[in-house]
Design a protein around this nucleic acid. Structure first.
Lengths: 339, 339
DNA sequence: TTGTTACGTGTAAACGGTTACATCGACGGC
DNA sequence: GCCGTCGATGTAACCGTTTACACGTAACAA
């Protein structure tokens, strides 16, 4: 007793399969009465078109693939949330693929025929590796990947964000900044580091880079170094919030006043940032908007696959600029828990 | 220049399409030499089987649908992470669908033919609504849904968890517990409330229920009531961590010592729980394991669709038991920030 | 030699849709 | 009354796989 097919509906409604297809897909040349009858029968039999068969005829799958690095934290929730918002409006589905380590080499290629396009986020992959894995001829939007790939690029303007934060710290009185960087080879991490260094140079303040890996633990280690004076700094700017929070806890644990003795800042504005004590100053990235925009761009590329429009060119390399969110770890006001 | 098809490979390798199919799918009756030639040609042409066509022939899609309520926070990241772990090992894909408000009524039905099975999480939906929307004949695993649906049920053992927490509070010296409940109609909330009440009865301690809605604000309101003495209690057990943290902040704001005067406990062990001061005692739910287990169960149901095995019966209604995580809000030791 | 068996390969029929084209009737202009 | 047109519907080909079945060949036993 498998599912009803279009032929079952046709037989039951005493029409041809072509008419059923036309009636259900809203074609014009269909007598209203016949359309109504077909719809009634389809509903009665619980008929739902077979997605595979449809994609075979139409050469469209109505699904877009999302390729993400190993999933952690709210970042991905937010991204998926934003993507889902756009996807639902377009009656598309999201096919999720996590790309990690060994597996995934042919995983990506296997998506061909299963999706109409790809949103790829792979900050840890180089252009060559990525190009090698990607199915050719599939529209793609790249989130925070190395530049120069064939497809639309959408990125967070990490350098500008880091610079804005350095400027804020300087304005708040910092003269020696410790920057806790993310893992080497990660594009986001590199850009934030470069942006911070450049801004510190321009502002004429010292900046020391401490190597981290985006984990809270590595942030704590960096915080400990600053607390013990191994590294001299009156401000600690971490490349993401997780490390900033790790550092914050470590500093407090060592009895350092924040922001009194050391100002602390992060990047991303994860929900947790506003809840720690003192609340963390950070750069907010509207992650949901990033995801939504990626889907918009991809959808545009799918409807106009080989479009040569000039207008598409510039729009294809957008950057989302993060916004500075000032909280208590960098400002003297609103203090309550200092000893 | 569309993608190469099996016929292209067959022509190029000078064999029939059947042989190509057999060679690539690892059938036995294929001469090794021919298999090698086919593989070489397939690789050269960049041939990847069309997923739609395959699903049409095989009546299998190699994808499973995940239906989730509106995405927020790390909970969903963790769930997806756990699911992905299992899914990748089985070479399946995850098709994500967010079920919210109006839309989704036919969204679910449309999944038929697009996935081999469904993992459904819909704590806000009743059995009738859910049954109405679900495609019939599709294997499904329900996460924390109302009981009595046709399919495997996997739940968090909320009642046992709440009971464990009540017992812990009593062991820590509590004699009058205030339970801040979650929103009415939410299955998790109801079960936690019932479990707490039953355990308090057994232990012979008083338990007052305060209505909350899982929000930090409602927790704060409850905390204020306890602080002002409107409700007499020496322990406050919230149905989730967000409310517990709200209560914690409110209690501290009213100058109540935690855990000195009032012990505080939550549920879920969100990452924030360990970072607030004092660190929150809570019940940890291994969410990734929940997701992974759901996929395992579903995979089993897919390979054995109409299996009548007795063994499947009991395994079909599993519960994941949360684990007690004792931190500083319920134990006198390790205190440092009390006035 | 001939019949049987086993094995490798090809042929063609599904799977469930969409749609170009053919068909058929009604209608209006001449 | 005939023909051209147009609109509604049916027929059948096609999308790319898998696989039951047929077929040819070679090895082997009788």
């Amino acid at each position: 007793m498998p599912n009803a097919t279009i032929r079952d509906v046709a037989r039951e409604a005493q029409v041809s399969v072509a008419s059923v297809s036309r009636a259900l897909n809203g074609h014009e040349r269909v007598r209203p009465e016949l359309r109504a009858r077909v719809q009634e029968v389809a509903a009665r039999l619980g008929y739902v078109p077979h997605a595979g068969a449809r994609s075979l005829s139409l050469a469209r799958t109505s699904a877009i693939g999302v390729v993400l690095p190993d999933l952690h934290g709210e970042f991905y929730s937010e991204l998926l949330r934003g993507m889902d918002r756009e996807v639902a409006a377009r009656r598309l589905a999201l096919l999720l693929t996590v790309l990690q380590d060994g597996r995934g080499l042919n995983t990506l290629a296997a998506l061909r025929g299963q999706v109409d396009g790809l949103v790829v986020m792979a900050p840890q992959l180089g252009a060559a590796e990525l190009r090698a894995q990607l199915p050719v001829g599939l529209p793609a939007v790249f989130l925070n990947c190395v530049p120069g790939l064939a497809g639309a690029a959408l990125r967070v303007d990490n350098a500008a964000g880091a610079a804005a934060m350095v400027n804020h710290l300087v304005a708040a009185g910092a003269r020696a900044i410790a920057h806790v960087a993310g893992p080497a080879g990660n594009v986001d991490a590199e850009e934030r580091r470069a942006g911070a260094i450049a801004a510190a140079d321009r502002a004429g303040v010292a900046l020391t880079v401490i190597q981290g890996d985006f984990s809270e633990a590595s942030g704590a280690a960096a915080g400990a170094q600053v607390a013990r004076g191994t590294i001299q700094a009156d401000a600690l700017f971490a490349a993401n919030d997780a490390m900033a929070i790790g550092a914050l806890v470590a500093l407090k644990g060592h009895g350092i006043a924040v922001p009194g003795q050391v100002r602390v800042a992060g990047f991303d504005d994860i929900p947790l940032a506003r809840l720690v004590t003192p609340a963390l100053t950070t750069m907010r990235v509207d992650i949901a908007a990033l995801g939504a925009r990626a889907v918009q761009l991809l959808a545009r590329r799918i409807v106009a696959p080989a479009e040569g429009l000039v207008e598409v060119g510039p729009a294809d390399a957008e950057a989302i600029v993060p916004r500075l969110v000032v909280r208590d770890t960098t400002t003297e006001t609103d203090r309550e828990t200092q000893s």
